[in-house]
């Protein structure tokens, strides 16, 4: 796997930093961190599906929404315990992942991206029409059971979830499966020509992504206590996820973490100056410039800097 001492040090420092954070920052900032944590989870989920394989998903909220709605409906409408509802929601989301996989067996590139966008819009419309008694229709649902009380608890809980998902995804992509998934993004037929079943590999990537999306979506809805279809199946939400991954650095797992934190804090920092949706103007502008001129993201900047430092210390 090519693990080095500094990998462990970095992850360790990251964990310690998360643990100490509530001592340092205000409750308001902590709430921002909670959102950042969930954004990291969604960004990792996107990265698992799209970052390496090159199958760009423009409809990731489709998966996240399945997780969120399933768990919310099970707990609120059917009185099922959260402990049971969340695993069921994750399984249902993975079935949703299979639905996203179907078009990926035949089409790729822009066409695949469009199908996923259509999936999301279809979900948005269907959720409002089919059984509004369960889904809450256009207004969505509120009064969903929450798992934590207060900013500190919510922060520790989401940080723990995010950390576990991040470190396991990171380990996963450092194994040979990571190489195989990268190879799919580079030349699919050559992967098949190396004796590996491309379908199996894609299925694994999509399932892993759906697993994380379902987990993130379900826990997120039990943090918020409410959900609204327009906020969930929204192109701005897609935009935030993709931009977080891209400016952090796709296919690295660390990149999405950096990107999501960077974006959340950019938004937070801009709040006093630009109170409304205008923040997206600056935010999107920065994202666009970064993406056009540093398509490999902030992570690539950091690693190349680190390599330069190492080379210097060797000399």
């Amino acid at each position: 796997m090519g693990l080095r001492w500094y990998h462990f040090t970095a992850w360790g420092l990251f964990a310690i930093g998360l643990a100490l954070l509530p001592e340092i920052v205000s409750k308001g900032t902590l709430r921002t961190f909670i959102f950042a944590n969930y954004l990291v989870i969604f960004a990792i989920s996107w990265d698992l599906l799209s970052g390496r394989t090159g199958y760009i998903s423009f409809g990731h909220p489709f998966l996240i929404g399945i997780g969120a709605y399933t768990s919310a409906i099970l707990t609120k409408r059917f009185g099922i315990d959260v402990e049971l509802a969340i695993p069921i929601a994750v399984i249902v989301t993975m079935i949703g992942g299979l639905i996203v996989l179907l078009p990926a067996l035949r089409i790729r590139g822009s066409y695949f991206a469009l199908v996923t966008l259509a999936f999301m819009e279809l979900m948005y419309q269907l959720v409002q029409v089919i059984r509004p008694d369960l889904t809450g229709g256009t207004r969505g649902m509120s009064g969903i059971q929450t798992l934590t009380r207060g900013a500190v608890n919510g922060f520790y809980f989401s940080s723990f979830l995010m950390f576990v998902i991040a470190i396991s995804s990171w380990f996963l992509l450092r194994t040979r499966i990571g190489t195989a998934l990268t190879a799919i993004g580079l030349n699919e037929s050559a992967v098949e020509g190396s004796g590996l079943s491309v379908t199996k590999l894609k299925m694994f990537a999509f399932m892993a992504s759906a697993f994380v999306a379902g987990l993130g979506g379900a826990f997120y809805v039990h943090y918020l206590g409410s959900l609204a279809p327009r906020a969930l199946f929204d192109i701005n939400f897609v935009f935030t996820i993709i931009v977080a991954v891209l400016i952090g650095g796709a296919s690295t797992i660390i990149g999405p973490i950096i990107g999501a934190l960077f974006l959340t804090f950019l938004l937070e920092y801009l709040r006093p100056y630009l109170p409304g949706a205008e923040r997206y103007f600056i935010y999107g502008g920065i994202a666009l410039l970064l993406y056009m001129y540093q398509p490999k993201g902030i992570y690539a900047l950091i690693t190349s800097g680190w390599q330069m430092l190492q080379e210097k210390s060797v000399k």
């Binding site: 190489t179 990268t182 190879a183 580079l186 030349n187 050559a190 992967v191 190396s194 004796g195 590996l196």
Partner: peptide
């Protein structure tokens, strides 16, 4: 048809992988 962005050993690694 190599995997252009993978290194030489990584290219061979893909061939060596079990399915």
């Amino acid at each position: 048809r190599p995997f252009l962005e993978l290194s030489v050993v990584e290219n061979i690694r893909v061939g060596l992988m079990p399915n």
